[in-house]
Protein backbone atom coordinates (compact mmCIF):
# COMPACT_ATOMS: atom_id res chain seq x y z
CA UNK A 1 0.00 0.00 0.00
CA UNK A 2 1.47 3.33 -0.82
CA UNK A 3 1.17 6.11 1.63
CA UNK A 4 0.49 9.51 0.18
CA UNK A 5 3.47 11.13 1.83
CA UNK A 6 5.88 10.38 4.63
CA UNK A 7 4.50 11.83 7.81
CA UNK A 8 5.91 12.19 11.26
CA UNK A 9 2.81 12.98 13.19
CA UNK A 10 -0.82 12.00 13.38
CA UNK A 11 -3.70 12.96 11.18
CA UNK A 12 -4.64 15.81 13.45
CA UNK A 13 -1.51 17.78 12.83
CA UNK A 14 -2.36 21.34 13.76
CA UNK A 15 -0.50 22.30 10.60
CA UNK A 16 -3.11 20.43 8.60
CA UNK A 17 -5.84 22.40 10.14
CA UNK A 18 -4.15 25.68 9.50
CA UNK A 19 -3.23 24.86 5.93
CA UNK A 20 -4.39 28.08 4.32
CA UNK A 21 -5.58 26.97 0.91
CA UNK A 22 -7.19 23.87 2.35
CA UNK A 23 -9.10 25.58 5.08
CA UNK A 24 -10.06 28.66 3.15
CA UNK A 25 -13.59 28.22 1.87
CA UNK A 26 -13.10 31.05 -0.57
CA UNK A 27 -10.25 29.19 -2.25
CA UNK A 28 -10.77 29.15 -5.96
CA UNK A 29 -8.94 25.88 -6.54
CA UNK A 30 -11.29 23.19 -7.85
CA UNK A 31 -12.18 20.33 -5.49
CA UNK A 32 -10.40 17.77 -7.64
CA UNK A 33 -7.79 18.21 -10.29
CA UNK A 34 -6.28 15.15 -11.96
CA UNK A 35 -3.43 15.40 -14.43
CA UNK A 36 -2.08 12.58 -16.58
CA UNK A 37 -3.19 9.87 -14.23
CA UNK A 38 -2.18 6.37 -15.30
CA UNK A 39 -2.76 3.41 -13.01
CA UNK A 40 -1.65 -0.17 -13.66
CA UNK A 41 -2.16 -3.48 -11.91
CA UNK A 42 0.56 -6.00 -12.68
CA UNK A 43 1.73 -4.05 -15.74
CA UNK A 44 -1.77 -4.00 -17.18
CA UNK A 45 -2.94 -0.39 -17.32
CA UNK A 46 -6.40 0.12 -15.90
CA UNK A 47 -6.55 3.89 -16.29
CA UNK A 48 -4.89 5.80 -19.09
CA UNK A 49 -3.90 9.46 -19.05
CA UNK A 50 -6.86 10.78 -17.15
CA UNK A 51 -7.16 14.56 -17.04
CA UNK A 52 -10.02 15.86 -15.00
CA UNK A 53 -11.21 18.95 -13.20
CA UNK A 54 -14.34 18.69 -11.09
CA UNK A 55 -16.57 21.66 -10.26
CA UNK A 56 -17.41 22.68 -6.72
CA UNK A 57 -20.79 22.00 -5.13
CA UNK A 58 -22.07 19.42 -7.62
CA UNK A 59 -23.26 15.84 -7.53
CA UNK A 60 -20.84 14.07 -9.84
CA UNK A 61 -21.54 10.59 -11.21
CA UNK A 62 -18.72 8.34 -12.36
CA UNK A 63 -20.19 6.10 -15.04
CA UNK A 64 -18.77 3.25 -17.06
CA UNK A 65 -19.01 -0.49 -17.73
CA UNK A 66 -17.67 -3.17 -15.39
CA UNK A 67 -13.90 -3.05 -15.20
CA UNK A 68 -13.77 0.49 -16.61
CA UNK A 69 -11.71 1.65 -13.65
CA UNK A 70 -14.38 3.64 -11.81
CA UNK A 71 -13.39 2.47 -8.34
CA UNK A 72 -9.74 2.64 -9.29
CA UNK A 73 -10.15 6.30 -10.22
CA UNK A 74 -11.51 7.03 -6.75
CA UNK A 75 -8.85 4.97 -5.04
CA UNK A 76 -6.06 6.59 -7.04
CA UNK A 77 -7.33 10.06 -6.17
CA UNK A 78 -7.37 9.03 -2.51
CA UNK A 79 -3.92 7.47 -2.65
CA UNK A 80 -5.18 3.94 -2.01
CA UNK A 81 -3.65 2.56 -5.20
CA UNK A 82 -0.35 3.82 -6.58
CA UNK A 83 -0.26 5.82 -9.79
CA UNK A 84 2.28 4.94 -12.45
CA UNK A 85 2.27 8.56 -13.44
CA UNK A 86 0.23 11.65 -12.83
CA UNK A 87 -0.67 14.15 -10.19
CA UNK A 88 -3.77 14.72 -8.09
CA UNK A 89 -4.74 17.88 -6.27
CA UNK A 90 -7.62 18.33 -3.86
CA UNK A 91 -8.47 22.00 -3.47
CA UNK A 92 -5.15 22.90 -5.00
CA UNK A 93 -3.04 20.81 -2.66
CA UNK A 94 -1.68 17.28 -2.65
CA UNK A 95 -4.00 14.79 -1.04
CA UNK A 96 -1.78 14.32 2.02
CA UNK A 97 -2.35 17.95 2.95
CA UNK A 98 -6.06 18.14 2.31
CA UNK A 99 -7.33 14.82 3.61
CA UNK A 100 -9.25 16.52 6.37
CA UNK A 101 -11.52 17.89 3.66
CA UNK A 102 -12.30 14.45 2.29
CA UNK A 103 -15.01 11.97 3.23
CA UNK A 104 -15.02 8.42 1.92
CA UNK A 105 -17.61 5.69 1.47
CA UNK A 106 -15.87 2.50 0.33
CA UNK A 107 -17.62 -0.36 -1.40
CA UNK A 108 -19.69 -2.33 1.04
CA UNK A 109 -17.88 -5.58 0.22
CA UNK A 110 -14.52 -4.11 1.19
CA UNK A 111 -14.85 -4.90 4.90
CA UNK A 112 -15.68 -7.88 7.08
CA UNK A 113 -19.15 -7.16 8.45
CA UNK A 114 -18.71 -9.83 11.09
CA UNK A 115 -16.27 -7.53 12.90
CA UNK A 116 -17.28 -7.10 16.55
CA UNK A 117 -18.54 -3.53 16.41
CA UNK A 118 -22.01 -1.96 16.35
CA UNK A 119 -23.38 0.62 13.91
CA UNK A 120 -22.55 3.47 16.27
CA UNK A 121 -18.99 2.23 16.64
CA UNK A 122 -18.49 2.30 12.88
CA UNK A 123 -19.84 5.84 12.60
CA UNK A 124 -17.54 6.96 15.42
CA UNK A 125 -14.63 5.86 13.24
CA UNK A 126 -15.45 8.81 11.01
CA UNK A 127 -14.43 11.05 13.90
CA UNK A 128 -11.11 9.32 14.64
CA UNK A 129 -9.25 11.57 12.21
CA UNK A 130 -10.28 14.63 14.18
CA UNK A 131 -9.49 12.99 17.49
CA UNK A 132 -5.93 12.20 16.50
CA UNK A 133 -3.57 9.89 18.34
CA UNK A 134 -4.35 8.50 21.79
CA UNK A 135 -7.65 10.29 22.41
CA UNK A 136 -10.62 7.96 22.75
CA UNK A 137 -14.08 8.86 21.48
CA UNK A 138 -16.14 10.17 24.39
CA UNK A 139 -19.63 11.37 25.02
CA UNK A 140 -19.40 14.25 22.54
CA UNK A 141 -18.27 11.90 19.77
CA UNK A 142 -21.00 9.43 20.62
CA UNK A 143 -23.64 12.13 20.33
CA UNK A 144 -22.24 13.40 17.08
CA UNK A 145 -22.21 9.88 15.68
CA UNK A 146 -25.79 9.35 16.83
CA UNK A 147 -26.75 12.53 14.98
CA UNK A 148 -25.23 11.17 11.78
CA UNK A 149 -27.06 7.86 12.22
CA UNK A 150 -30.28 9.78 12.73
CA UNK A 151 -29.64 11.63 9.47
CA UNK A 152 -29.62 8.34 7.56
CA UNK A 153 -32.63 7.01 9.48
CA UNK A 154 -30.72 4.42 11.47
CA UNK A 155 -30.80 5.80 15.01
CA UNK A 156 -32.89 2.92 16.35
CA UNK A 157 -30.36 0.38 15.09
CA UNK A 158 -27.31 2.14 16.57
CA UNK A 159 -26.50 -0.64 19.00
CA UNK A 160 -26.90 -3.48 16.58
CA UNK A 161 -23.88 -5.52 15.57
CA UNK A 162 -23.21 -4.69 11.93
CA UNK A 163 -23.66 -8.19 10.51
CA UNK A 164 -27.26 -8.08 11.80
CA UNK A 165 -28.07 -5.22 9.42
CA UNK A 166 -29.43 -5.66 5.91
CA UNK A 167 -27.25 -4.65 2.98
CA UNK A 168 -28.99 -1.34 2.61
CA UNK A 169 -28.69 -0.59 6.30
CA UNK A 170 -24.97 -1.38 6.18
CA UNK A 171 -24.64 1.03 3.30
CA UNK A 172 -26.37 3.72 5.34
CA UNK A 173 -23.97 3.11 8.23
CA UNK A 174 -21.08 3.77 5.85
CA UNK A 175 -22.80 6.92 4.65
CA UNK A 176 -23.27 8.09 8.24
CA UNK A 177 -19.58 7.46 8.92
CA UNK A 178 -18.68 9.69 5.97
CA UNK A 179 -21.08 12.38 7.24
CA UNK A 180 -19.26 12.23 10.58
CA UNK A 181 -16.09 13.19 8.74
CA UNK A 182 -17.66 16.60 8.05
CA UNK A 183 -15.82 16.83 4.79
CA UNK A 184 -16.02 19.32 1.95
CA UNK A 185 -15.80 16.70 -0.76
CA UNK A 186 -17.13 13.16 -0.54
CA UNK A 187 -16.08 10.14 -2.57
CA UNK A 188 -18.57 7.29 -2.60
CA UNK A 189 -17.97 3.93 -4.23
CA UNK A 190 -21.31 2.49 -5.42
CA UNK A 191 -23.40 3.63 -2.44
CA UNK A 192 -26.57 2.57 -4.25
CA UNK A 193 -25.46 -0.84 -5.50
CA UNK A 194 -27.80 -3.62 -4.44
CA UNK A 195 -29.66 -1.64 -1.82
CA UNK A 196 -33.37 -1.57 -1.04
CA UNK A 197 -35.68 1.19 -2.14
CA UNK A 198 -35.75 2.88 1.27
CA UNK A 199 -31.97 3.08 1.32
CA UNK A 200 -31.74 4.43 -2.21
CA UNK A 201 -34.19 7.16 -1.24
CA UNK A 202 -32.27 7.92 1.94
CA UNK A 203 -28.95 7.99 0.11
CA UNK A 204 -30.08 10.27 -2.68
CA UNK A 205 -31.78 12.52 -0.14
CA UNK A 206 -28.52 12.87 1.78
CA UNK A 207 -26.57 13.50 -1.40
CA UNK A 208 -28.91 16.32 -2.35
CA UNK A 209 -28.67 17.80 1.16
CA UNK A 210 -24.90 17.70 0.95
CA UNK A 211 -24.99 19.49 -2.38
CA UNK A 212 -27.34 22.16 -1.14
CA UNK A 213 -24.94 22.88 1.70
CA UNK A 214 -22.24 23.45 -0.90
CA UNK A 215 -20.41 20.13 -0.70
CA UNK A 216 -19.06 18.28 -3.68
CA UNK A 217 -20.01 14.62 -3.96
CA UNK A 218 -18.38 12.15 -6.35
CA UNK A 219 -20.34 8.92 -6.73
CA UNK A 220 -19.50 5.77 -8.63
CA UNK A 221 -22.83 4.72 -10.10
CA UNK A 222 -23.79 1.53 -11.85
CA UNK A 223 -27.42 2.12 -12.69
CA UNK A 224 -27.62 4.23 -15.84
CA UNK A 225 -31.37 4.85 -15.63
CA UNK A 226 -31.11 7.15 -12.65
CA UNK A 227 -28.12 9.15 -13.89
CA UNK A 228 -29.95 12.15 -15.38
CA UNK A 229 -32.23 12.37 -12.36
CA UNK A 230 -29.47 12.20 -9.76
CA UNK A 231 -26.34 13.88 -11.10
CA UNK A 232 -25.40 17.39 -12.22
CA UNK A 233 -22.14 16.34 -13.71
CA UNK A 234 -20.95 13.04 -15.11
CA UNK A 235 -17.62 11.41 -15.82
CA UNK A 236 -17.84 8.74 -18.51
CA UNK A 237 -15.01 6.31 -18.10
CA UNK A 238 -13.75 3.25 -19.88
CA UNK A 239 -10.05 2.91 -19.14
CA UNK A 240 -9.74 6.28 -20.82
CA UNK A 241 -11.80 9.32 -20.01
CA UNK A 242 -14.56 9.34 -22.61
CA UNK A 243 -16.23 12.58 -21.56
CA UNK A 244 -16.78 14.72 -18.51
CA UNK A 245 -19.09 17.65 -18.01
CA UNK A 246 -22.61 18.74 -17.12
CA UNK A 247 -25.03 15.83 -17.42
CA UNK A 248 -27.23 17.61 -19.95
CA UNK A 249 -24.30 18.04 -22.31
CA UNK A 250 -22.30 14.89 -21.75
CA UNK A 251 -24.82 12.15 -20.99
CA UNK A 252 -25.74 11.59 -24.63
CA UNK A 253 -26.40 8.46 -26.61
CA UNK A 254 -23.26 9.00 -28.64
CA UNK A 255 -20.98 9.39 -25.63
CA UNK A 256 -22.58 6.34 -24.05
CA UNK A 257 -21.89 4.34 -27.19
CA UNK A 258 -18.25 5.38 -26.93
CA UNK A 259 -18.21 4.33 -23.30
CA UNK A 260 -20.05 1.04 -23.49
CA UNK A 261 -19.26 -0.10 -27.01
CA UNK A 262 -22.10 -1.83 -28.79
CA UNK A 263 -23.99 -3.19 -25.81
CA UNK A 264 -27.45 -2.39 -27.03
CA UNK A 265 -29.51 -3.25 -23.99
CA UNK A 266 -27.58 -0.78 -21.91
CA UNK A 267 -27.89 1.84 -24.59
CA UNK A 268 -31.63 1.33 -24.78
CA UNK A 269 -31.88 1.67 -21.05
CA UNK A 270 -29.94 4.89 -21.16
CA UNK A 271 -31.88 6.21 -24.12
CA UNK A 272 -35.08 5.81 -22.14
CA UNK A 273 -33.52 7.61 -19.22
CA UNK A 274 -32.37 10.47 -21.38
CA UNK A 275 -35.75 10.69 -23.04
CA UNK A 276 -37.57 10.76 -19.73
CA UNK A 277 -35.29 13.37 -18.31
CA UNK A 278 -35.18 15.80 -21.18
CA UNK A 279 -38.35 15.28 -23.15
CA UNK A 280 -40.69 17.62 -21.27
CA UNK A 281 -38.93 20.86 -22.11
CA UNK A 282 -35.59 20.44 -23.80
CA UNK A 283 -35.30 24.17 -24.55
CA UNK A 284 -35.84 25.19 -20.93
CA UNK A 285 -33.18 22.75 -19.85
CA UNK A 286 -30.57 24.54 -21.88
CA UNK A 287 -31.32 27.86 -20.29
CA UNK A 288 -30.87 26.54 -16.78
CA UNK A 289 -27.38 26.07 -15.39
CA UNK A 290 -26.27 22.49 -16.03
CA UNK A 291 -28.54 20.23 -14.12
CA UNK A 292 -31.02 17.61 -15.16
CA UNK A 293 -34.71 17.57 -14.56
CA UNK A 294 -35.43 16.51 -11.05
CA UNK A 295 -38.97 15.58 -10.24
CA UNK A 296 -40.36 17.48 -7.30
Amino acid sequence: MNLPAPRVSGPNLPRDEAAPAAADPASTAPPVEVHDMTVAYHRKPVLWDIDLILPEGKLVGVIGPNGAGKSTLLKAILGLVPMVSGRVEIYGRPYAESRRLVGYVPQRESVDWDFPVDALGVVEMGLYGRLGWFRRPGRAEREKAMGCLRQVGMADLARRQISQLSGGQQQRVFLARALAQEARIYFMDEPMAGVDAATEEAVIGILQELRSSGKTVVVVQHDLQTVPAYFDHVILLNLRLVAAGPTSEVFTAENLRHTYGGRLTILDEAAHAIERAYQPAPEDRKAEPPGPARPG
Binding site: M1, Y104, F115, V117, Y128, G129, R135, R136, R177
Partner: peptide
Amino acid sequence: FYKEFKLVSFDSDFSTVQGWPTL
Protein backbone atom coordinates in the same frame (compact mmCIF):
# COMPACT_ATOMS: atom_id res chain seq x y z
CA PHE B 1 -3.50 2.32 20.37
CA TYR B 2 -6.88 0.66 20.95
CA LYS B 3 -8.77 3.03 18.66
CA GLU B 4 -6.11 2.89 15.94
CA PHE B 5 -5.83 -0.91 16.03
CA LYS B 6 -9.62 -1.18 15.88
CA LEU B 7 -9.84 1.08 12.84
CA VAL B 8 -7.00 -0.60 10.96
CA SER B 9 -8.39 -4.04 11.70
CA PHE B 10 -11.87 -3.15 10.51
CA ASP B 11 -11.23 -0.94 7.47
CA SER B 12 -7.64 -0.27 6.52
CA ASP B 13 -8.55 1.71 3.39
CA PHE B 14 -10.66 4.10 5.39
CA SER B 15 -7.85 4.45 7.90
CA THR B 16 -5.46 5.37 5.08
CA VAL B 17 -7.89 7.91 3.64
CA GLN B 18 -8.19 9.47 7.08
CA GLY B 19 -4.44 9.83 7.20
CA TRP B 20 -3.40 7.15 9.68
CA PRO B 21 -0.10 5.43 8.88
CA THR B 22 -1.92 2.18 8.16
CA LEU B 23 1.17 0.29 7.07
